[in-house]
């Protein structure tokens, strides 16, 4: 299955901004992080289709995943 992955802030360095990635059925957000070499601790904010998600959540085809480091401001 194909999911769309969006990276932000420092995670873009040496990686990419936005890309479609292929995963086998039953893969989780944790598997996606592993493939991107981003540790669970580093991933401050994980969004699955715009909603909060955990590394344990399963991926389904055409999901949009957004990954941010810990951020603040305003």
């Amino acid at each position: 299955m194909v999911v769309e992955v969006k990276l932000f802030a420092t995670f873009r360095k040496g990686r990419f901004k936005e890309r479609e990635m292929e995963f086998s059925e039953g893969s989780s957000l944790g598997d996606l992080l592993k493939r991107l070499k981003i540790s669970r601790e580093e991933a401050g904010l994980l969004l699955l289709n715009g909603q909060y998600a955990s590394w344990k959540d399963k991926l389904t085809a055409h999901d949009v995943v957004s990954i941010f480091p810990s951020l603040g401001g305003g």
Binding site: A9, L47, F68, L71
Partner: peptide, 8 residues
């Protein structure tokens, strides 16, 4: 840095 977070 918040622009993309709040938008997403």
């Amino acid at each position: 840095v918040l622009v993309n977070v709040i938008n997403e």
